[in-house]
Design a binder for these strands. Structure first.
Length: 596
RNA sequence: GGGGUAGUAGCUCAGUUGGUUAGAGCGCCUGCCUGUCACGCAGGAGGCCGCGGGUUCAAGUCCCGUCUAUCCCGCCA
């Protein structure tokens, strides 16, 4: 080994020993007659004393630059009392260099590598030089947390009898779900693989195969537009179990998350997790992944305005819609710009406008719609929404789901504004895990004029609802469950259908997929179910999202070693690229002009 | 596909109603310095103001287009 110790290892106990250290020059302080080098490796920093008169290396030290890699041979010395640096674990000692080997002189880095400065650097530059970005302690820390989270996962699942099994990334195209990355087949001219968007079908086949307990840290590929929390390739903790029901899955998952939080953060999380029905989540928080760390809950005003003279509200109610509101407590001083942003956000979700009541510090109500309310309605609003001076109340009147979504979005935006004003605190070290359950199995897709699976077509209906499959599909609840943490969906799964007849019925009669298409896409699956498919169910965790929450980073790019940009580019290696005509010919493809 | 934000020195940014030679901090280079740890001091170099077009006597600044990054909507069974 080139080193005897890491740069975080030496303490007063090592004084007098001869050591070899190797690492990067974190900083270089030249005082003329004496020079200080902070030598850095992934573990920490050690101060090295360089004597410019030392003939063993005096000819070389002028070449030293920050980020160069050097090997130091020297003796550990105690620092004088006044020179001790209490900010460093190694601050009580320093290494006096007796010899120095320069392994690599570094050019000046294109951006500062100090954590506090680097976070402000343009991300495209950091991505282009990702190997330098990752050298920063904060980035190394997230990589390490990710590794620890993966290890906790493997430890826990292995202890619970799970087998880690790899499934193919090269799968066949199943255009039912997300857009896929296509891979041309050289050996099968004109045919294509698709990169797996998830191991869903394989893991169910493993259950038919009698594996009983499967998991995998699976890479998944989806060719959809990206977001701060979405990458074209991402990692799932993919789990499937046989002979279980929903309660077994909740217990397993709660145990796994508790283990991760314990092993990575040293935090005990309370169990069992609370549960909330999808309808309650939408009604109270306006989303299916509520952040329950703060209130600002939505209130239904249907009864209040059922007989109202205010035509806008009354009309929506009469046509089957809802009227809802929530009190953004203490936000009456929202600026015009902020109100405009909120209204635009509401409009982007299909609102016609964003009605509000602003209550001044003196208690005066100001609102464009106030004149339409009766005195009784005003009094009732005040009571239902606990309206006080300084409050700002938002309304939505629309069909149920739209009204919920609009206020759900405004609720989150309002919370952010309240946070900026210091009137609402949403602790980042609070972990509100939550099960969202009782999702509808199917939703009616207006554009296609048919029902589509809300989750995926393999989800089993809740048993007592199964009779409604044909008569009233939208009333059927699925045995689907989402695990939500602080407003992020971190896992989702379901108990699956394991009887071939029911699965075929869902495909053909409910989802209206033609029989020949069902046979082509899912024929093998239906066939397998005829040979004794066990009852089974599973779940998949968004591993990148979990790690980003553990690490306290707002975007998953920060917890992926080599992420892609919003346009799917790898700025470091510079992909994707064009390929040669020869490569295309090999896979029986031809490149056409873009506008052809 | 749509909407927003940003792009000025290696990095982070300032640049007023369009007006002389485009600035600051950090970094970089040179020199000095034996106790610093974001060392200090003195001096210096460094600019296609993203790119293309337009308006104007005059554009970093105004207009149009375009590229890149980013945030959001659609999309993500």
């Amino acid at each position: 080994m080139k080193r005897t110790h890491t740069c975080n290892a030496l303490t007063a106990a090592d004084v007098g020993s001869d050591v070899r250290l190797i690492g990067w020059i974190d900083s270089l302080r030249d005082h003329g007659g004496i020079q200080f080098i902070d030598l850095r490796d992934r573990e920490g920093l050690t101060q090295v004393i360089v004597d410019p008169t030392n003939a063993a290396y005096s000819g070389q030290i002028d070449r030293l630059r920050p980020e160069s890699v050097v090997e130091i041979h020297g003796r550990v010395c105690a620092r004088a009392e006044a020179d001790i640096n209490s900010k460093l674990p190694t601050g009580g000692i320093e290494v006096h260099a007796e010899n120095l080997v320069i392994h690599n002189i570094s050019e000046t880095p294109p951006f500062p590598l100090e954590d506090e400065k680097a976070w402000k650097v343009n991300e495209d530059l950091r991505l282009q030089y990702r190997y330098l970005d990752l050298r920063r302690p904060a980035m190394y820390r997230t990589l390490r947390m990710r590794s620890e989270a993966a290890k906790a996962t493997r430890d826990y699942l292995a202890e619970n009898g799970f087998l880690e099994i790899e499934t193919p990334y090269l799968f066949k195209s199943t255009p039912e779900g997300a857009r896929e990355f296509l891979v041309p087949s050289r050996l099968n001219p004109g045919k294509f693989y698709a990169l797996a968007q998830s191991p869903q079908q394989y893991k169910q086949m493993l259950m038919v195969a009698g594996v009983e307990r499967y998991y995998q840290m699976a890479r998944c590929f989806r060719d959809e537009d990206l977001r701060a929390d979405r990458q074209p390739e991402f990692t799932q903790i993919d789990i499937e179990m046989s002979f279980i029901d929903r309660e077994d899955m909740y217990a397993l998952v709660e145990g796994l998350l508790a283990r991760m939080w314990k092993d990575v953060l040293g935090v005990e999380i309370p169990r069992p997790f609370p549960r909330m029905a999808y309808h309650d989540a939408m009604n109270r928080y306006g989303v299916d992944k509520p952040d329950t760390r703060f209130d600002l809950e939505i209130v239904d005003l249907g009864e209040l305005f059922a007989q109202s003279d205010f035509k806008v509200f009354r009309g929506v109610l009469d046509s089957g819609g809802v009227v809802k509101a929530f009190n953004a407590k203490g936000l009456a001083d929202a600026t015009q710009g902020e109100m405009r942003d909120l209204e635009n956000a509401a409009k982007s979700l299909g609102a016609k406008g964003l009605a509000f009541i602003r209550v001044s510090a003196e208690g005066e109500w100001k609102s464009p719609i106030l004149k339409f309310f009766s005195e009784a309605e005003v009094a009732a609003l005040k009571e239902r929404l606990a309206i006080e001076p300084g409050d700002l109340v938002f309304f939505a009147a629309a069909e149920w789901e739209r009204a919920c979504s609009i206020l759900g979005r405004i609720r989150l935006d309002a919370a952010r504004l309240l946070q900026q004003r210091g009137r609402l605190s949403i602790p980042t070290d609070r972990y509100n895990f939550l099960w969202v359950i009782d999702f509808p199995l199917m939703i009616f897709e207006e554009a296609e004029g048919r029902y589509v699976a809300a989750h995926h077509p393999f989800t089993a209906p809740v048993e007592e609802d199964a009779d409604l499959l044909e008569s009233n599909p939208k009333a059927v609840r699925g045995q689907h469950y989402d695990c939500v943490l602080n407003g992020s969906e971190i896992a989702g799964g379901s108990i699956r259908i394991h009887q071939p007849a029911l699965q075929r019925k869902v495909f053909e009669e409910v989802l209206k997929i033609p029989a020949d298409v069902v046979e082509e896409r899912f024929g093998y699956m239906l066939r397998s179910f005829k040979y004794g498919a066990p009852p089974h169910g599973g779940i998949a965790f968004g591993f990148d999202r979990i790690v980003s929450i553990l690490a306290g980073r707002p975007m998953i790019r920060d917890v992926i070693a080599f992420p892609k940009t919003q346009k799917g580019q790898d700025l470091m290696a510079d992909g994707p690229t064009a390929v040669t005509a020869r490569q295309l010919r090999d896979v029986h493809m031809q490149s056409l002009p873009i506008d052809a």
